[in-house]
């Protein structure tokens, strides 16, 4: 996969960390045909996104191909402070995977 497919911004305010992330991925639902070649486009989408902070699983998201191209994901959690590291990783239906870490600011 392309390098740096994940962008993360995590901010702590009043004990709550707000995470905003963008992943670069085609999110092909599959089943459609390529308009130019007439060949079917294979399904290619992120199935699972996992988020960890301080080694604990904060949230895991399961996606279908119904999530928009280049998925945006935002969520909130408590239990981490400024300077802590958080990690986000994804796995798609073709077995590709990527992960990124960010410092909570």
């Amino acid at each position: 996969m392309a390098k740096k497919s994940i962008k993360i911004r995590a901010k702590e305010k009043g004990g709550v960390v707000t995470v905003k992330s963008l992943m670069t991925h085609p999110m092909q639902i599959g089943g459609q045909k390529d308009k130019k070649t007439g060949k079917p486009i294979p399904a290619h989408f992120i199935q699972e996104v996992n988020c960890e902070a301080n080694g604990k699983n904060v949230m895991s998201a399961l996606f279908s191909g119904g999530v928009s191209k280049n998925p945006y994901l935002s969520f909130k959690f408590s239990g981490a402070k400024k300077g802590d590291m958080m990690k986000l990783s994804w796995v798609d239906n073709q077995g590709n995977t990527d992960s990124a870490e960010a410092k909570i600011g």
């Binding site: 709550v16 988020c51 902070a53 604990k56 699983n57 904060v58 949230m59 895991s60 998201a61 399961l62 996606f63 279908s64 119904g66 999530v67 928009s68 998925p71 945006y72 994901l73 935002s74 969520f75 909130k76 959690f77 408590s78 239990g79 981490a80």
Partner: peptide, 15 residues
């Protein structure tokens, strides 16, 4: 999409 909330996660998701 389905989001499984872990430890400390708040009831908030945006996508």
């Amino acid at each position: 999409a389905s989001f499984n909330m872990g430890e400390g996660a708040m009831g908030f998701v945006s996508t």
